[in-house]
Simulated assay, not measured.
Amino acid sequence: MDIPAEHLVEITVLESNHGQRLDQFLAQHAALFSGDFSRAMFQELIVKKKVLVNDLVRKNNYRVRTHELIQVSVPAPIPSELVPEPVEFTLVYEDDYILVLSKPPGIVVHPACGNLTGTLVHGLLHHCTGLSGINGQIRPGIVHRLDKDTSGVMVVAKNDEAHHSLSSQFKNKTAKKTYYALLDGVPSGKEGKICSSIGRHPVNRKKMAVVAETRGKAAVTNWKVMTRFDHNLLWAEIGIETGRTHQIRVHMASIGLPVAGDAVYGKKNDKYNDLGIKRQCLHASRLSFSHPATNQQVTYVAELSPDLAGVLELLQFSVREL
């Protein structure tokens, strides 16, 4: 088998980019690279000396200058033959361009360290052979993600044309996502808007946190209380204008309303065991976007997963006034 060689991407710094951090500059030009490159991935390439500035190795925080030549040696993806396997998910809609599904909790979207089998991607390959190859063998068809323990609606691209269209819509914030969550706390009002940057936690690098604008990415979350229950629990509708890692979980925790059952950002509450809460009570309910083939606006809904429906059924006897 021929092993693909790494390839070189060259970018000349324009005057408008003068003074930007090197890692930030590369992240801003991620569209020039094949695959789904994040700022963290570029930072890793810089550390590994795969990025040269005018033939010199620089650090992530180096400030680029006008007319400098940035050369990035992009390693070829490690060949990985994913073996299709049956993985549970609910099919919502499918045609030649897209597949819409409802992901159950406990399922990782794509293979990564510690989760090399049993992912949603394995299940998609078992269900159909036609998926977009833009994200490589590890993430075929994947244009957005849900956390392992978040349930709900997702759209998958079945060809490259659909992938480009959907990726563009998520990037330009024209695709709309609505979530529902059981929150734990006392709200300051019935609804609100959170505009706080999100970045890596300064101490625990596996977590995200609300950080200063200069250290994170802008993130906007809108929330509205739908129902209040005893034990300071409430059911809320949540809309996100950006798609940052762990955004809803981090933002809601930052205002004292963490997602119930969230083992990373949440609280400990003895009532969780009584209610059968075993994971973060967060569900992606509705997804709207323009269909890649017809350009018509479409909306798909995922019903609540059985575990969350069961929690709400138990809580229905403790409804309080808003």
Rank of each mutant, 00 (worst) to 15 (best):
Q24A: 00
D36L: 03
C195N: 14
N60E: 11
K271A: 00
L312Q: 07
H126L: 01
A40I: 05
G199D: 04
E313H: 02
P202Q: 12
T117E: 10
R39Q: 06
T90P: 09
Q71S: 15
P292V: 14
Q43I: 12
I11W: 06
L22P: 15
M41R: 11
L14D: 14
H164M: 11
N269W: 01
P258Q: 07
L22I: 09
H144G: 06
T227W: 03
H144I: 15
L26M: 07
L166A: 10
P202F: 04
T150Y: 12
H7N: 13
L116A: 12
L282P: 14
I107T: 10
T178S: 09
D36S: 13
Q71A: 10
G239E: 15
N61P: 00
T129C: 04
V301M: 09
L282M: 02
V64Q: 08
A30V: 04
H67Y: 08
A302N: 12
E213G: 02
R63C: 13
H231F: 05
G310P: 02
V47G: 00
P84I: 01
P86G: 00
T12A: 02
D307T: 06
G152R: 04
V109R: 09
T242W: 02
Y265F: 07
L120F: 11
D230W: 01
N269E: 08
S80H: 14
A284W: 11
G216A: 03
R145E: 01
V57K: 06
K268C: 01
E85P: 01
A253W: 02
C195E: 14
I198H: 04
Y179C: 13
L14I: 13
I142D: 04
I198M: 12
Y93W: 10
G185F: 05
K217Y: 04
H110Q: 03
H127G: 08
S167C: 13
T245D: 04
P105H: 08
V211E: 00
V74Y: 06
N115Q: 12
N204T: 14
N159M: 03
S34W: 04
V259G: 08
M226G: 06
A293R: 13
L183G: 02
I238Y: 11
T90H: 10
L322D: 09
Q71D: 07
A30L: 00
L32W: 02
G136Q: 10
P105S: 03
H283K: 03
S197I: 10
I198A: 09
E161D: 12
D230A: 07
N232P: 07
I248F: 01
A209Q: 08
V211Y: 03
Q43W: 04
L233T: 05
M41L: 13
A209T: 15
L82C: 11
L52Q: 09
E15K: 10
R63I: 11
S254K: 09
V53K: 10
I138N: 02
A253K: 01
D55I: 02
R215P: 05
A30H: 15
A30P: 11
H29L: 07
N159V: 05
M252T: 09
V210T: 06
R205P: 15
